[in-house]
């Protein structure tokens, strides 16, 4: 009985506890990311943004949460009920599931698995199902058009994201996310004399890929300027038209958790994860988690500014950018990086 407890029950309890802590912290973080998104957007447009609920509007996201939960859920009479209710769940659960492998500090991941980056790629490629199922099950024109658009869009940009990840993996030689971060302690900066600094991170060594990844991440998560799935001027709200109350909240939540996941992935792949920007005293005192969160916030700020500043892409422009611009560049960079590593003996 003792071995049963120590072999199965105790590890399961520890994993459960880690997961609960991760989810709670993540959801609170997402609530403030949402608030920040609206504030930044408002500031660019010379508005005040949310400023009524709580001091400076800080509790706005929680007010929205209660508003959604207490509203009446409406299921359209022609809808395919089971799939209709499953879609927002799929969207939110998958987005949160991917966080299981994200290391926020050395050893601080719920599951530190060998194929971490493939796991994230697999889960994020599944997120399209929430949108497709929601769009189809609503049994309505605009959601269906939104679903078709998102299917094509997400599949297209996954290709270039895949190739960008391949270039990073060529430099690292491991699929483990912790290894990817740790490998960024040695790079260009170290050769220039700044050991273990921000010049070592992959954003500099693989510069064009950093830009392509950030833009593809926006397209993959349907963020503006690539939010053709829910383009309100054409499709009302895309796949979410027929959704109300908690179901809508889950879609909304899934979308933002996925966006923050992409920010975290950019941080891990290109901005050195939890590593401090300079390996000298005041910077090394700050714990790794703080650096990680700061970097995620920085990437999210870029996402937010892109939303505020850029107009929405036209659909054919979006497809052209994905297939005719990003795919050739990333494909070329895979070959170039491999050749460089082989010839110079870095690998």
């Amino acid at each position: 009985m003792d071995t049963f407890f120590s072999f199965y029950v105790l590890p399961a309890l520890i994993i459960l506890l880690k997961s609960v802590v991760l989810i709670v912290v993540l959801l609170i973080f997402v609530a403030y990311v949402l608030y920040a998104d609206r504030k930044i957007w408002a500031a660019v447009q010379l508005r005040r943004g949310p400023n009524v609920v709580g001091p400076w509007g800080l509790f706005q996201a929680f007010a929205d949460l209660f508003k959604f939960v207490f509203k009446e859920p409406i299921i359209p009479s022609g809808a395919n009920k089971g799939v209709f209710l499953l879609a927002p769940l799929v969207s939110a659960v998958l987005a949160i599931t991917a966080w299981a492998v994200i290391p926020v500090n050395e050893g601080w991941a719920v599951a530190n698995i060998n194929v971490g980056i493939l796991y994230v790629l697999a889960i994020s490629s599944l997120e399209v199902y929430g949108v497709i199922m929601g769009g189809w099950a609503s049994n309505s024109k605009y959601p269906f058009l939104g679903a078709l658009r998102s299917a094509a869009q997400m599949v297209s940009y996954e290709v270039s994201i895949g190739f960008v990840i391949v270039t990073v993996l060529l430099c690292v030689g491991s699929l483990n996310l912790t290894d990817i971060v740790l490998s960024q302690q040695d790079g260009l900066g170290t050769r220039l004399g700044l050991t273990n600094s921000l010049l070592d991170w992959h954003w500099l060594g693989l510069f064009p890929m950093f830009i392509i990844f950030t833009i593809s991440a926006m397209a993959e998560t349907n963020r503006p300027p690539f939010d053709l799935v829910e383009a309100e001027s054409e499709l009302v709200a895309g796949h979410m038209v027929e959704y109300s109350s908690t179901a809508f909240l889950l879609f909304f939540l899934g979308e933002y958790v996925a966006v923050v996941l992409m920010c975290a992935l950019t941080t891990i792949l290109f901005l050195g994860g939890w590593l401090p920007p300079l390996d000298i005293a005041p910077f090394t005192w700050v714990p790794g988690v703080i650096w990680f969160v700061l970097k995620v916030c920085f990437v999210f700020f870029i996402f937010s500014m892109a939303k505020a500043v850029l107009p929405r892409y036209r659909y054919d422009q979006l497809m052209r950018l994905g297939w005719k611009v990003f795919l050739p560049i990333s494909l070329f960079m895979v070959v170039a990086t491999a050749a460089f590593l082989k010839l110079t003996g870095f690998a």
Partner: peptide, 26 residues
């Protein structure tokens, strides 16, 4: 076989089945 598991998800579920669903819905 963790690599095969992830590739099965990425290739079949993430790409092939999306196109499948696409065609069947249309």
């Amino acid at each position: 076989a963790e690599f095969l598991a992830m590739i099965l998800l990425i290739v079949y579920v993430g790409a092939v089945m999306v196109l499948f669903l696409f065609v069947i819905m249309m």
